Simulated scan of single mutants.
Amino acid sequence: MAESRRAHVPIEQRRRELTETAVTVMAREGAWALTTRALAKEAGVPHGSVHYAFSSKDELMRSVMRLDLTHLSDLVQTQQDRPIHGPEDVAAAVADLFAAYADSVMANPDKETAYFELSLMAARDERLRDLVVQSQQEYRRIMVALFNDLAERAGLRWETDVVLVVEQALTLLFGAALSWLEQRDDALFRAVLEDGADMVGRRLV
């Protein structure tokens, strides 16, 4: 009877539930442990239900990465309405964004580790690499839009191509996160990101 009721769950809701469950499996057992059978077992649904929601494992992985992008978009959204009058305000906005990301990493390190594992797996898997590249391009698009908006509201411009500024900022952000996952040094993690945000602000002219 319980499964009969589950069958009437709207497909988009089912996909969301399965995607969140997939991240749970990855966080607990490692990104490589995610299979459609493991997902079905964790979710308590028939294997066919997973294939009904996702036509392929690639589609499932795309949904997993989209969930991570949604998290970034939510963090970025918090900085889009704050008053911006100069480079100090831009640096403060970036610092707050970096700090919010750091909070999320420290609150759920296993989930962040799983996403890093996906990126490393993509280095050996051409199909997964294409999905990860698409996800990374969307990361850049979101951040470029934010950085352009911050500069415009400050009445300034970036001293170099904003794509380069964003790429360096993301490299710093994710590199610091990976270092924290290895060392668990909270103070160093926050100090690196705070200094990085200040460097970003100094790139406005």
Rank of each mutant, 00 (worst) to 15 (best):
A2Q: 08
R5M: 10
A7N: 03
I11S: 13
I11P: 01
I11K: 01
Q13R: 15
R15A: 05
R15L: 12
E17A: 13
L18D: 00
T19F: 07
E20M: 04
A22C: 02
V23S: 03
V23Y: 02
T24S: 11
T24Q: 02
V25I: 14
A27K: 00
R28F: 07
R28S: 14
E29H: 07
A31P: 05
A31G: 04
A31H: 05
L39Q: 01
L39G: 09
L39F: 13
A40I: 11
K41D: 14
K41T: 09
E42C: 02
A43T: 03
A43E: 07
H47I: 07
H47N: 10
H47M: 09
H47Y: 13
H47T: 06
H47P: 00
G48W: 10
S49Y: 12
Y52W: 06
A53W: 12
A53L: 11
S55C: 06
S56N: 00
R62N: 05
M65L: 15
R66C: 07
D68F: 13
L69Q: 09
L69M: 13
L72Q: 03
L75Q: 09
V76P: 04
Q77C: 09
Q80E: 14
H85Y: 08
V90K: 03
A91Q: 03
V94C: 10
V94G: 01
A95I: 00
F98C: 05
A99D: 08
A100Q: 09
Y101S: 07
S104C: 06
P109G: 06
D110E: 15
D110F: 12
K111D: 02
E112A: 11
E112G: 00
T113G: 08
A114T: 02
A114P: 02
A114D: 04
F116W: 08
F116N: 04
F116K: 04
M121C: 10
A123L: 15
R124K: 05
D125K: 10
E126N: 04
L128R: 14
L128M: 12
L128E: 08
R129E: 10
R129S: 15
D130W: 06
V132A: 01
V132L: 14
V133S: 07
V133H: 10
Q134V: 03
S135K: 12
Q136Y: 13
Q136D: 11
E138Y: 07
Y139A: 06
R141I: 12
R141K: 14
I142R: 15
A145R: 12
A145G: 14
F147C: 11
F147D: 12
D149R: 10
D149F: 03
A151W: 05
R153M: 05
G155Q: 13
R157W: 11
R157G: 07
E159F: 03
D161N: 14
V166D: 13
V166S: 04
E167H: 07
E167G: 10
E167D: 15
Q168W: 09
A169Y: 05
T171N: 08
L173D: 14
L173H: 04
G175T: 07
G175K: 05
A176K: 02
A177V: 08
A177M: 13
L178N: 05
S179M: 09
L181Y: 05
E182V: 11
Q183M: 12
Q183N: 10
Q183H: 13
D186F: 01
L188F: 09
F189W: 00
L193C: 02
G196Q: 04
M199E: 05
M199R: 15
V200A: 06
R202W: 07
R202S: 03
V205P: 04
V205T: 09
